[in-house]
Design a protein around this nucleic acid. Structure first.
Lengths: 150, 150
DNA sequence: AGTGAAAGATTATGTCG
DNA sequence: CGACATAATCTTTCACT
């Protein structure tokens, strides 16, 4: 990964729908050379893929909640069971294990409070949780910005 | 937005690189009809765009931190200044205003602890913050899953 | 690794039910 | 609004430096 690769990534982060021709132009390379670099970035896994950005509001997902969880049990078995359980809840869109006075951070997209409460009930039904703190998003100032390269 | 539109969105969330032909096939529509629906979804803003998914580790961004901030001042002026300040820090990839005992939730991608500390210093240098709690991600179990449609 | 050009696919448009 | 055919564009491969 050299300078040019970083330029390619930066350009595509900023404008993912660039055509090969436009991209090549921006990084001052022939279309073909640029295409081969892009292919390598994909094959090597630096580019994991693409994703669709949807307007949550337009889909009625107006409630974003950050739930911090403290767990009681920590056996390997329990953790595995917990993960599989969380994975079955589609409203959970991010799921991080963290350090500090909580063990997990979940980002949840729900239609409304009633819908969130159902997610919450599902979260606690199967597993023994010590503490759940929910932070409700009042406003997404920004979300999923380009990663800082270099 | 009818059933078919939802099918289109679901298919594209799951496989954003589908060609028009493949997509049309999956939703049982002619290529052209599917294309026009897709166009409408883009024009109406339901589809905001696409984004590149990069492997953070491959880029050396091994440290993900969730920083919860409690602010001291809350005047409109102050808030505006605070937002503009945060926007200048590229490591901050998510920025939410939340309810509860913190006011803001930031997701930060940094190379390492020293790099995070510089972000932290920049965060607190310009604005009067009451409290900053940093949760360090130990593991991303999942991130940016498809939104639950319907 | 890079370039230019041509073959192969895909996307966007026009026309008609 | 949907289907089918065609023009325009973009992607991928080839031959060569």
């Amino acid at each position: 990964m050299d300078e040019i690769d970083l330029k390619i990534l930066a350009a595509l982060q900023q404008a993912p729908d660039l055509s090969q021709r436009e991209l090549a132009e921006r990084v001052s390379l022939s279309q073909n050379a640029c295409w081969r670099r892009l292919r390598k970035l994909e094959e090597s896994g630096v580019i994991v893929g693409r994703s669709l950005r949807l307007d949550r509001s337009a889909l009625g997902l107006d409630l974003i909640v950050f739930a911090m969880l403290r767990t009681r049990s920590h056996s390997a078995d329990w953790l595995e069971k917990f993960r599989r359980h969380v994975a079955t809840i589609p409203e959970v869109i991010d799921f991080y294990r963290i350090s500090g006075d909580y063990d997990y951070m979940l980002k949840i997209a729900a239609r409304d409070m009633a819908s969130y409460d159902r997610v919450y009930q599902r979260l606690i039904e199967k597993v023994e949780l010590d503490n759940v703190t929910s932070y409700f998003a009042m406003e997404a100032i920004f979300d999923n910005r380009p990663l800082p390269l270099r």
